[in-house]
């Protein structure tokens, strides 16, 4: 054991909800401010274990960019007991937060290359800080393209902000099921890839969404000539501790909380290819 080099396992730190924005019927974005000591800064792609009092704890990716303030931004979709409790939080409520955990997006590896972000549904949440980071460093990267897919127009996240990003980045949005006033694209997000304005060999891609969508997008990019190591994906598995101790987040050789959740397609593809791994 080498305890000197390792961070001790931790209790949650109390954070207060200082802002709540309802994104969709079942998704809300929270800004959390530390009540006492703050956790170390989170990098885009890393996650926190967020605890709802008396209900439980779930991993939630960070959705805000560290701007020197000790606040955290998380976007939560109400699908289980804990996420429903978190969705129901109001300004002034307190939660527990542990972290930062995991390996985040390696945006630096995209220096000098075009940046392609592909998000499906709630998958845009962990990609938001990456997009903000890219926009904050104009000139460091080539063209920034953001492709967003959602089930319906009502399920689109960060709508006002997405439009604002359009000033400096190419934003394309598609939905599976249009609503009466929808004038945009309809269909899966992979269809937007065919309109690529980037060179497959000179792009670094960042992909998050449902696993079949990740599979389709990454597969398409690699077939078009993007090296698998330049396609970064963020994966999801059950997590209990976030610190590599509970064993739940195994995906074959990978402990996703420790070695992920972001990994490159070269490593992820053979693992995801095995059913029920």
């Amino acid at each position: 054991m080498n305890p000197a080099a390792a961070r001790p396992s931790s209790r949650p730190f109390p954070y207060r909800v200082v802002r709540r924005a309802r994104e969709t019927a079942d998704v809300a974005t929270f800004e959390l401010s530390p009540v006492g000591d703050a956790l170390p800064p989170f990098r885009p792609g890393q996650f926190a274990m967020v605890y709802a009092f008396g209900v439980g704890e779930i991993p939630v990716s960070v959705s805000g960019l560290d701007d020197g303030e000790p606040t955290l931004v998380h976007t939560v979709r109400a699908v289980g007991a804990v996420s429903r409790a978190l969705y129901g939080l109001r300004v002034g409520d307190t939660v527990g937060v542990r972290g930062p955990y995991g390996v985040g997006w390696d945006l630096a590896s995209a220096a000098g290359l075009d940046v392609l972000v592909v998000a499906g549904g709630i998958g845009l949440a962990p990609l938001r800080p990456l997009i903000l980071d890219g926009l904050a460093q104009p000139g460091r990267y080539g063209r920034l393209t953001v492709l967003i897919g959602a089930r319906t127009p009502s399920d689109l996240l960060y709508r006002a902000q997405t439009r604002a990003w359009g000033a400096e980045a190419h934003i394309d949005v598609t939905v599976d099921h249009p609503e009466p006033d929808w004038r945009g694209d309809v269909g899966v997000v992979t269809r937007l890839l065919s309109r690529g304005t980037w060179s497959p060999s000179r792009v670094c891609a960042f992909v998050c969404g449902p696993e079949p969508m990740i599979h389709a997008v990454a597969g398409e990019l690699v077939r078009a000539g993007t090296p698998p190591h330049r396609v970064q994906v963020s994966l999801e598995r059950n997590m209990r501790c976030g610190e590599g101790f509970c064993g739940h987040c195994q995906l074959g050789s990978v402990l996703l909380c420790r070695d992920g959740p972001v990994t490159d397609w070269g490593r992820a593809e053979p693992l995801l290819a095995v059913k029920e791994l």
Binding site: R7, P8, S9, E243, G244, F245
Partner: peptide
């Protein structure tokens, strides 16, 4: 188990103390 619970970036504090 020493390596699993204490050999990575985090260490399981209670385990370490008992060990």
């Amino acid at each position: 188990q020493d390596r699993v619970l204490g050999g990575g970036p985090h260490t399981a504090t209670a385990y370490r103390r008992r060990r």
